Simulated scan of single mutants.
Amino acid sequence: MDRNADFGGFLGQAIDLVTTNSRASLLFIAVVGGFNAFGLMMGLIDGNDSIAGIGFGFSIDASEGITAALYQLATAALSIVASYFLLMVLLASCGRLKDRSTRIWAYIGMSILTVLGAVLGMLLLIVPGIILLVRWSAASGFLIGERAGVTESLGQSWEATRGYSWPIFFAFLVLIVGFIVVAGVIGGVAGFIGSDLIIAIASSAAEAAGSVLSLAFGIGVYTLLHDDSQQVSEVFS
């Protein structure tokens, strides 16, 4: 289905990618969410490290032991690797995966750069961090789908999203707010039941589902803004 590169297009494309690749999305939630839920149940992960299913990543404080630190590191590593393979599936489903050979290390490097840039931007009155997240939203598509370099992918995403910042921002905002409402209802039901196991599973599944939506949204932005018609014509010329 052809979509316009606007608010509705970005939102619809992300939802379509998740529903079209529901099996891979559910597998991601089961694996990453399950690993996280086990850590919560065993006291190896602090439940306060996430809000409404949006995780803040790997963190250690002085009160945590080496076992907890290693488990959190393993959780972060699993999340990154699972994210990479989910991105490959999303790109392949829309015919944008040119090569299946791994670029996991480049993806890890770009993820670190993106997080550092966003965090630094957030410290500078928040707005610069939001701008970076919006303008770099399509970078994973260029890195994995087009096999561009790390800085090249960030640069291509910056150029591709030029003039589309507001519709990307509002589409992602609506997607996340809607998700937070649903996750809040599920969390409320889990809290009402009062079972530690159910609460751990619900919060971990919500966090993993938030990651799926975020990854799909980035690929949706990439597929709507990246024009590969020239590359296709070069192949058949």
Results as ranks from 00 to 15, higher is better:
66 I>T: 07
67 T>H: 08
68 A>W: 04
69 A>I: 00
70 L>Y: 05
73 L>Y: 09
74 A>V: 11
77 A>I: 14
78 L>M: 12
79 S>L: 08
83 S>H: 07
85 F>R: 07
85 F>W: 04
85 F>Q: 07
86 L>H: 01
87 L>W: 00
89 V>S: 14
90 L>S: 12
91 L>P: 09
92 A>Q: 14
93 S>E: 04
93 S>A: 14
94 C>L: 12
94 C>M: 11
96 R>L: 13
100 R>S: 15
100 R>K: 15
101 S>Y: 02
101 S>H: 12
105 W>G: 11
105 W>L: 15
106 A>V: 06
107 Y>M: 05
107 Y>V: 00
108 I>S: 02
108 I>P: 07
108 I>N: 00
109 G>P: 13
109 G>S: 08
109 G>C: 07
115 V>C: 10
115 V>K: 15
115 V>G: 07
122 M>Q: 07
124 L>C: 06
128 P>I: 00
128 P>E: 00
130 I>M: 09
133 L>M: 10
134 V>F: 01
136 W>F: 10
137 S>N: 09
138 A>G: 04
139 A>V: 01
141 G>K: 04
144 I>S: 05
145 G>W: 00
146 E>T: 03
147 R>C: 04
148 A>Y: 01
148 A>P: 03
151 T>W: 05
152 E>S: 12
152 E>I: 06
152 E>W: 03
153 S>H: 03
157 S>P: 13
158 W>M: 06
158 W>T: 00
160 A>W: 01
160 A>F: 03
160 A>Q: 05
161 T>A: 05
162 R>P: 11
163 G>Y: 04
169 F>M: 14
171 A>G: 12
173 L>E: 04
174 V>D: 07
174 V>Q: 07
175 L>Y: 00
177 V>Q: 13
178 G>K: 01
181 V>Q: 02
182 V>F: 12
183 A>P: 12
187 G>N: 14
188 G>S: 08
189 V>R: 04
190 A>F: 13
194 G>E: 01
195 S>Q: 05
195 S>E: 03
197 L>M: 09
198 I>N: 11
203 S>P: 11
203 S>H: 09
204 S>A: 15
204 S>M: 07
204 S>C: 11
206 A>E: 10
